[in-house]
Design a protein around this nucleic acid. Structure first.
Lengths: 153, 153
DNA sequence: TCAAATAGTACCAATTTGGTACTATTAGCT
DNA sequence: AGCTAATAGTACCAAATTGGTACTATTTGA
């Protein structure tokens, strides 16, 4: 099934939590876990990853915690997924060119790449602040404010 | 990881094979498996599913086989994935509203739905014939044509 | 120096996935 | 009529992945 892992799911959820609060504020893992009703060990794990990947700044020691590295409107869903799960690769051949046994006969290699890019672009247009403060109106699934894209017809 | 299952992967590959050949032609599982270098039992399994879901017409009995239900340019990648894996649901709450324990506190429910719709639309714009006969030019990943979106900066 | 926090790593049970096997049914061909 | 080649349906299994936990080391404010 095409489904986000729970880790990525939680990652987005937690970062949205950070983004929704006052900018730059520090939150401990314990606090975040409680606010979101998630198991603490799992929250710890995900926050560690997000810090290691540079989306959160970690503050060690007593009264430490994590804070967002930049404004929520400048962090995309695609970035978060990449941080937690690694580069988006809908198929094997996208992730590791040359390792798929079928690559010689498969006529769809460039097609897979385009499918992947299509999904990636879609996710790259959604920012954290879009998630918590939904853009008003238009039933359209998405269209991003500062994504550099406009609807023309 | 966000990855297509092999079943869906094969489903798209096999249908592309059908689409690329003369329209309406019949192919047996054995033939398709050989042409694509895939294990026969797996091909059988996937073709059965595609027939059950109405994307292929099955012809039973000796000299039977499968044929495409309609032209490749009228079958989308989204349809195929749905046939093989069920409705696209990037998160649990999209698939089964009300079952997620966090649903009461989660502020992202509508956001998940939009993420899902965004990906679904992207996949719904790619047809089988797009895969085998790539639209010429523009490095753009996809769907320039009827997506109504252009990059402006 | 203590307590509260993150960093890193290893581990495990449960689920999912990729693939196979087997039986039943259908239908063309001689 | 009967054989053969095909699909239909279902059950099964091993291996990989996932969701989650545990434990130790390190850091730092009070």
């Amino acid at each position: 099934m095409i489904r986000m892992s729970k880790e990525a799911d939680y990652g987005i959820l937690l970062l949205a939590h950070f983004s929704h609060q006052q900018q730059g504020r520090k939150h401990s893992a314990r606090e975040v876990a409680q606010d979101n009703g998630l198991p603490l060990p799992m929250v710890r794990k995900v926050l560690k990853i997000l810090a290691r990947e540079g989306l959160l700044i970690s503050h060690r020691g007593a009264r430490g915690g994590y804070s967002l590295v930049r404004l929520g409107q400048r962090i995309t869903v695609a970035e978060i997924i990449k941080a937690v799960e690694g580069p988006l690769a809908m198929t094997e051949c996208v992730e590791a060119p040359g390792e798929c046994r079928l690559e010689s006969t498969c006529q769809l290699k460039t097609a897979w790449q385009r499918i992947n890019d299509t999904v990636l672009q879609a996710l790259g247009r959604m920012t954290l602040s879009d998630l918590t403060d939904p853009p008003p109106g238009e039933g359209q699934p998405f269209g991003g404010s500062d994504s550099g894209l406009v609807r023309i017809q």
